[in-house]
Amino acid sequence: MRFMIIVKATPESEAGKMPSEALLTAMGKYNEELVKAGVMVAGEGLHPSSKGARVRFSGASRTVVDGPFAETKELVAGFWLFECSSREEAIEWVRRCPNPMEGDSEIEIRQVFEAGDFGAEFTPELREQEDRLRATIAAQT
């Protein structure tokens, strides 16, 4: 099972405050543990929302809204993608994480949908297309 581990933004991360050397060192050690255990698939920090944009959809209409975005608790400052055998294993790995914001912070854990989760609507043709796209992505990296 794959899990998206979402590091929530704080006022400090939204202000562009960079992590300390001590935190970067602790995160590097944690990421090494994740990789050695075969858990970490990907992980990155994100620039503040002031450098981002949102695209709002309303039927066929698209509207672009530039950041920053007001509600800090709803923003994402970074992420990992974990491969774990269960939700409980993902939780245990996150509990071992250094505090990502050097103050109060929050990390959300969400399971990623797999092909089998979609049922009959995910037809053999759609599965074939998905497999082809994933193979293309893998070949590009």
Results as ranks from 00 to 15, higher is better:
Glu14Gln: 14
Gly78Glu: 08
Ala53Asp: 00
Glu12Met: 03
Gly45Phe: 04
Ala70Tyr: 03
Asn31Glu: 09
Leu46Ser: 12
Cys84Trp: 05
Phe79Asp: 08
Glu92His: 09
Arg127Gln: 14
His47Gln: 14
Leu81Gln: 05
Val65Gly: 02
Val55His: 02
Cys97Glu: 04
Ser105Phe: 04
Leu24Ile: 06
Gly67Asp: 08
Ile109Asp: 11
Cys84Glu: 07
Pro11Tyr: 03
Glu71Gln: 12
Ala42Trp: 10
Ala77Gln: 08
Ala138Ile: 01
Trp80Leu: 09
Cys84Tyr: 07
Glu33Pro: 00
Glu121Thr: 10
Thr63Gln: 14
Leu126Arg: 10
Gly52Trp: 01
Arg54His: 08
Ala15Thr: 02
Ala115Trp: 02
Met40Lys: 14
Pro100Phe: 06
Ser50Tyr: 00
Ala9Asn: 09
Ala37Lys: 13
Pro100Cys: 01
Thr123Gly: 05
Gln129Cys: 02
Ile91Cys: 06
Ala9Ile: 07
Cys97Val: 01
Met18Leu: 14
Gly28Ser: 05
Ala42Tyr: 12
Ser13Asp: 06
Val76Lys: 05
Asp131Ser: 11
Asp66Lys: 12
Arg62Tyr: 00
Ser105Gly: 15
Arg54Met: 08
Ala9Arg: 08
Glu71His: 12
Ser20Asn: 05
Arg96Trp: 00
Pro48Tyr: 04
Ser105Tyr: 05
Arg110Ile: 04
Glu32Ser: 12
Val35His: 11
Leu24Trp: 00
Ile91Asp: 01
Val55Trp: 02
Ser105Pro: 10
Pro19Ala: 02
Val76Asp: 07
Lys73Cys: 06
Phe79Asn: 11
Met18His: 10
Trp93Gly: 06
Arg132Asn: 11
Glu125Pro: 05
Ser13Pro: 10
Thr123Ala: 06
Arg132Met: 08
Asn99Cys: 13
Val64Ala: 06
Val76Cys: 14
Gly119Gln: 07
Val112Glu: 13
Ala53His: 09
Ala42Phe: 11
Leu126Ala: 11
Val41Ser: 10
Ala60Tyr: 00
Lys8Pro: 04
Pro48Asn: 09
Lys51Thr: 07
Met4Ile: 06
Ile91Glu: 12
Pro19Trp: 01
Gln111Phe: 00
Gly116Asn: 12
Thr63Ile: 08
Lys51Trp: 00
Pro124Phe: 02
Phe122Ala: 09
Cys84Gln: 06
Gly43Trp: 13
Leu46Phe: 15
Pro98Trp: 01
Asp117Ala: 14
Gly16Arg: 03
Ser49Thr: 15
Ala60Glu: 14
Thr123Met: 04
Glu106Gly: 02
Glu89Ala: 12
Gly52Lys: 02
Met101Glu: 07
Gln140Trp: 04
Gly45Leu: 13
Trp93Asn: 09
Ala42Ser: 15
Ser86Val: 09
Glu108Trp: 08
Arg134Trp: 09
Val35Thr: 15
Ala9Trp: 05
Phe69Pro: 11
Pro48Arg: 03
Val76Gln: 11
Met27Thr: 11
Ser50Cys: 03
Gly28Asn: 09
